[in-house]
Design a protein around this nucleic acid. Structure first.
Length: 823
DNA sequence: GTAGGGTTAG
């Protein structure tokens, strides 16, 4: 093998490539192709046969110029000059015109190895891989011309899409070319694209001589397959063998540093770049910008960008994405405008960032314009990524129908397209649509669900309390070992928590890795909705003791846990700690929790003061929390004030009208209640109907208030009458303040008795064996009178009754509710 | 005159 190697020419140097941009000295000699042509003609007339055509080839920057040159060469009688015409073949392809390239090739009568190699490479350059392979077969079948070192690297590039790689590899072995550094690098690259890093590694290990390009190819093979650790391992070996990094090494290794979150390594590489003067390379700078952006170090990213003398579209995309992904859409948009100002044309990935920018700016109108921009360029056909970005954009902007429409239009859908739509539905509160979409996805055999799928479907199941389906997914995850994935497991914790299986949520939590805040946030939130505020606080302390950093979501979970359990002082402590010790500025969600915490505990004035002194503008959720507190404590005055503010910011949400009318009704101001209701009616808003569901066996039964059509209607109402009588004998007094209609007392009692949660409970009682627990799911908050009644029912029937309403869990047992009547 | 290995993403 070694003797074969010795017989090969030494070729570890790089030739000057004819690819643009041109070397500056050519510019100095010839300002344009036309200038070059004049020079040639002149030389020709002066009978100077030593014309250096290199200059001329280099000065052709568009197809028109190449055509002129082509014509000129014919006129000059050079039509049979294989050297010049082979160059034309390459030149046409470099400028993107493969048919002219082929045409020129056809007209060359005495094709030599250069000509064939150039044609193959021309096809590859234009992405015509199938044609490149056909050309190779043609090449092989012509006797007298044997492929050489130059033939294979482009061929392997073509193999990536044509899948003839192994056959070609055999050829290479047969001809003894496998140790050529160029050939081997393209082999490594090809195998890595096929996902066979092990084979790539074997090729790499078998190389008797490696140049820096070989190392680069191996590093890139690991990166392409998501193995950043492997890539950094190769970098380490390079260091041991004292191979110097070049700019390609740097550009490939920087994303690996970002992936393993190794800022120190990244900065050391940056130092190396400065020391060795590699900053002039655009790829290197782009990779630096991206790395710093992933570390959230925007100033460093910006400094690299500012220092660049030449910027390409990737540089601009990178700086736009850096700000966009670090939650600064305004600056990102500023860079986009600057990009346009300097005349840099946006590409597909620019638009992906733009879509996300307008989501963050909640700008529906410009979002549509982005969609139009994409349509006009036909990019929707070209790449799924952009289609998925648009689906995501519309879903996040709340236009789920538009998201669906874009999804329907996609010519190709991948697993991410489906995940995006499912997430869109789930996040817009349309759980059953999310589930339908997931089921439709299951029918597409070509789409294999991945981590993102589980993360999108599990919350939908949680939302409607579909424990059975959720557990089915858990089973599937155990089978493919994904249940230890932190994100998936967190969704499972949420699911168990929201479906009332707090113990299962807890045991899962202790099974999985918990170095990040993600699973902690989920378990704290689960404890919160079950009313275990003290335990939530204890877990928060455990979390800090284990050295896990709390984030803003942790505090949302924690504050809401405090508010559900009435832990005012503790909530106050968390709120202070968040700002002072963790340096987290409270956002609207945190303020919402605090208003809820103060408000529900009856500190309406404190709640109001907090709202008045907030550094941020209160939104509907803040005023809504205050309004809800006013309803609980019967404060019509502050309630009216809050609802006025509320309707200024959100006049569409009918729930707020209902709340206000409840407040008026509770204090006996029936005219006020009627006025609010008619206002809602006039604006065309309809009350979300309250419903409750109960699971009997594997069937979910749904009840609306006053339902008279259920097949077991008579039995249900009979059961309720019987219960009412027993409840009254134990001291139950109906609370008519929850009846909004202005009617007679006995009719009010009738209305209370037929609230949806009571119907569901009664149905549960007559359809399940004695002493078995009953689980109810209600889409709105449970009514105060029903809450009281359920306590009595749990005592009379000796049943555990678990009610999950839109806010939290109520576990009724032996006449007591787990919420301690604090709800 | 012909060749390899590099940066951005939903």
């Amino acid at each position: 093998m070694l003797s074969l190697l010795k017989s090969l020419p030494s070729r570890n140097f790089k030739l000057i490539s004819p690819i643009f941009p041109l070397q500056p000295w050519i510019h100095q000699n010839f300002s344009s192709a036309t200038g070059s042509f004049q020079q040639i003609s002149q030389d020709h007339e002066n009978k100077n046969n030593n014309v250096n055509f290199n200059f001329v080839f280099h000065s052709c920057r568009d197809i028109g110029a190449v055509k002129q040159l082509h014509a000129l060469l014919v006129v000059l009688g050079k039509a049979q000059n294989v050297v010049l015409f082979t160059q034309l073949v390459t030149l046409y392809a470099t400028l993107g015109d493969i048919s002219l390239s082929r045409n020129t090739f056809e007209h060359i009568q005495r094709k030599n190895i250069f000509t064939w190699n150039s044609m193959v490479s021309a096809y590859v350059r234009c992405g015509r891989y199938r044609d490149a392979m056909d050309c190779v077969s043609e090449f092989f079948s012509i006797s007298g011309v044997r492929p050489d070192f130059y033939t294979f690297p482009p061929v392997f590039k073509a193999c990536v899409s044509v899948v003839d790689g192994e056959k070609m590899h055999c050829w290479v072995l047969k001809m003894g070319f496998e140790h050529d550094v160029y050939v081997a690098a393209s082999l490594i690259h090809m195998y890595s694209r096929f996902g066979s890093v092990d084979v790539a590694h074997r090729v790499f290990d078998d190389m008797p001589v490696r140049d820096v390009g070989s190392w680069n190819a191996m590093i890139s093979a690991f990166i392409q397959n998501g193995n950043a650790v492997g890539a950094l391992g190769i970098l380490g070996r390079m260091k041991v063998e004292e191979v110097k990094m070049d700019m390609v090494t740097v550009a490939s290794v920087l994303p690996a540093c970002a992936q393993v979150n190794d800022a120190v390594c990244g900065m050391l590489v940056h130092l190396y770049v400065i020391k060795h003067g590699l900053e002039s390379d655009v790829f290197v700078c782009n990779a630096l910008i991206n790395m710093y952006s992933k570390f959230g170090r925007l100033q460093d990213a910006q400094r690299v960008f500012d220092g660049m003398k030449v910027r390409d579209v990737v540089s601009w995309n990178s700086i736009v994405a850096a700000y966009e992904q670090n939650d600064d859409p305004v600056t990102a948009l500023g860079f986009f405008k600057w990009m346009q100002f300097v005349g840099m044309r946006p590409d597909l990935l620019t638009v992906v960032s733009l879509a996300s920018i307008f989501v963050q700016l909640s700008d529906q109108k410009v979002g549509r314009a982005v969609h139009g921009f994409v349509m006009r360029r036909g990019w929707l056909e070209e790449d799924v990524v952009i289609g998925n970005a648009l689906v995501n954009m519309y879903a996040k902007l709340g236009s789920i129908d538009c998201a669906r429409a874009v999804f329907e239009q996609l010519s190709r859908r991948d697993v991410i397209s489906w995940n995006t739509l499912i997430t869109g539905y789930a996040q817009n509160g349309l759980a059953s649509e999310a589930i339908d979409t997931y089921n439709m996805m299951g029918e597409c055999r070509t789409i294999i669900p991945n981590q993102g799928t589980w993360v999108s479907i599990l919350p939908a199941y949680s939302h409607i309390g579909a424990l059975q389906q959720g557990m089915k997914i858990h089973g599937r995850l155990i089978k493919n070992c994904l249940y230890l994935d932190v994100f998936v497991a967190t969704c499972l914790i949420d699911m168990y928590g929201e479906c009332g299986r707090l113990e299962d949520a807890m045991s899962l939590f202790y099974e999985i890795p918990r170095e990040t805040s993600v699973p902690w946030n989920a378990i704290i939130s689960s404890l919160g909705i079950h009313g275990h505020g003290e335990e939530a606080l204890q877990l928060f302390k455990d979390m800090l003791a284990e050295g896990v950093k709390a984030d803003h979501i942790t505090f949302v979970s924690l504050l809401s846990a405090c508010s559900h359990s009435g832990l005012v002082d503790e909530g106050q402590w968390c709120f202070d700690m968040m700002q002072k010790e963790c340096g987290i500025k409270p956002n609207l969600k945190h303020y919402g929790c605090m208003v809820d915490l103060y408000g529900r505990a009856g500190y309406l004035e404190k709640a109001y003061n907090l709202v008045s002194n907030m550094p941020v503008q209160a939104d509907a959720s803040i005023w809504g929390a205050l309004l809800a507190a006013c309803r609980i404590h019967g404060n019509a005055e502050l309630g009216t004030f809050a609802s006025d503010r509320l309707l200024e910011v959100d006049s569409e949400n009918v729930g707020y009208y209902v709340l206000l009318s409840n407040i008026y009704a509770n204090v006996g101001k029936w005219e006020g209640a009627v006025k609010v209701r008619s206002l809602a009616r006039d604006r065309g808003l309809r009350k979300t109907p309250g419903w409750s569901s109960v699971v009997v066996g594997s069937v979910v039964e749904v009840f609306y208030a006053g339902n008279q059509t259920h097949s077991q209607c008579t039995e249900i109402y009979k059961e309720l009458r019987m219960l009412n009588a027993k409840m009254k004998s134990l001291g139950y007094v109906p609370d008519y303040s929850y009846v909004l209609q202005d009617v007679e007392e006995d009719e009010k009692e009738q209305i209370l008795t037929s609230h949806s949660e009571r119907l569901a409970i009664a149905f549960g009682l007559i359809s399940t064996p004695p002493k078995s627990p009953i689980r109810i799911f209600k889409n709105l908050r449970v009514c105060g009178d029903c809450h009281n009644a359920t306590k009595y029912i749990s005592k009379i029937t000796e049943r555990d009754i678990i009610v999950r309403d839109s806010n939290r869990f109520h576990h009724f047992k032996d006449g007591i509710c787990s919420c301690g009547d604090y709800w």
